[in-house]
C-alpha cells in the first residue's frame, strides 16, 4: 500500500542558472539515493506549502546520493523553493513515471530536441548518453530558447558545443547583436542536421505548442512514429494514478508517462 510520506532530504547546493531558474542539488537522508531513470520526476514536498512535480536533471549514475533539480520560480511551491538556502530541509516523493527507454534505443542515433525548460529533464538523458557514449550512435542536440540569457546550463551547453561526442545546435527567438548562432524557431534547426531516419530516435521536450511542429518536421524526415518520444508535462499531484490531475484521455501520465512515443500519444486526443 502506498502512503504520502515524503522522504526527508537536504539542499546541499544551489546555483543560479538564469534570472528565473536555479539548480538545486539534493541529498536524501537515506543512503539509497533516488535511483531514477532519465526523464522521471519527483514530487517536492515543502511542509505547510504543498507539493509540486519536478523533473530530475541529473543522470542516474552521477554522484551517488545526490541528484539535481532545475526549478523555475513560477508557482507557490517553486517560489518558496527559491527562498530556501543550502542546508534547508525538504521532502521528496518518487521517482515517478516510466522514464526514457534508454535500453531500447541502444545502438541508435539520438536526436534530442529541447525547447526552453525542456532541457531540464533532457539533461538527465544527455548526460546519461554521454556517460554511456559507446552504446549509442550519433548524438544530436537541438536547443531553442527565447533569448540568449535564457539558456539553461550555459557552461555545459558551451562545453557540449566543443565536444565531438555530441552535435549541438542552438537557436534563440530574439537575438542580441553579439549572438553568433541561429535565430528563429527550433524547427529551423532541422535543415542544419542530416539524419538517417531509419537509425534515429528522437526525444522531444518543450512548451506544449512546440510538439506539433517538431513532430511534423520529424515525420517529414521519415522517422517512424514509434521512434519519436515525447516527455509530456501535466499537473502531477499524487504520483499514484489516482488524483486525476494528469489524466490524458484514458491514461494517467504520472504512471503511464511522462514519456510516450508518438505512436501512443497520437491516439490520445488530449495529448498534443
Amino acid at each position: 500500500m502506498f502512503n504520502f510520506l515524503p522522504m526527508p532530504a537536504t539542499i546541499v547546493d544551489i546555483r543560479q542558472l538564469t534570472d528565473k531558474e536555479r539548480l538545486f542539488t539534493i541529498r536524501l537522508d537515506n543512503d539509497r539515493g533516488i535511483r531514477h531513470r532519465p526523464c522521471q520526476f519527483i514530487l517536492i514536498s515543502l511542509l505547510g506549502i504543498g507539493e509540486a512535480p519536478i523533473s530530475i536533471s541529473s543522470p542516474p549514475v552521477d554522484s551517488g546520493r545526490t541528484f539535481e533539480l532545475c526549478i523555475r520560480a513560477v508557482g507557490n511551491l517553486t517560489n518558496a523553493m527559491h527562498r530556501l538556502s543550502v542546508n534547508d530541509r525538504i521532502g521528496i516523493r518518487g521517482p515517478f513515471g516510466n522514464g526514457f527507454p534508454v535500453e531500447r534505443i541502444e545502438g541508435k542515433d539520438i536526436l534530442i530536441v529541447a525547447g526552453g525548460l525542456g532541457l531540464a529533464p533532457l539533461r538527465s538523458l544527455i548526460k546519461y548518453v554521454l556517460q554511456e557514449r559507446g552504446r549509442y550512435g550519433r548524438v544530436i542536440l537541438l536547443i531553442g530558447t527565447k533569448r540568449p540569457g535564457d539558456i539553461l546550463f550555459k557552461e555545459e551547453v558551451l562545453k557540449w558545443e566543443e565536444d565531438p561526442a555530441i552535435e549541438t545546435h542552438i537557436t534563440v527567438d530574439v537575438a542580441e547583436p553579439s549572438w553568433q548562432r541561429h535565430v528563429g524557431v527550433i524547427t529551423g534547426l532541422f535543415k542544419h542536421v542530416g539524419i538517417d531516419p531509419f537509425k534515429t530516435i528522437a526525444a522531444i521536450v518543450g512548451p506544449p505548442v512546440m510538439y506539433r511542429f517538431v513532430i511534423k518536421e520529424l515525420l517529414a524526415k521519415g522517422i517512424f512514429e514509434g521512434n519519436i518520444y515525447l516527455d509530456l508535462e501535466r499537473r502531477m499531484r499524487c504520483g499514484i494514478g489516482k488524483c486525476g490531475h494528469c489524466q490524458i484521455n484514458g491514461i494517467y501520465l504520472c504512471q503511464n508517462g511522462p514519456v510516450l512515443s508518438y505512436l501512443e500519444a497520437r491516439k490520445l486526443q488530449e495529448a498534443l
Binding site: 502512503n3 504520502f4 510520506l5 515524503p6 526527508p8 537522508d29 511542509l47 505547510g48 530541509r89 525538504i90 521532502g91
Partner: peptide, 14 residues
C-alpha cells in the same frame, strides 16, 4: 493524510 512538524521533517507521520 499526514501530520507534520514544521521544524523537523523527519517527524512527519502518516
Amino acid at each position: 493524510l499526514l501530520e507534520f512538524d514544521l521544524k523537523d521533517i523527519t517527524k512527519t507521520e502518516v
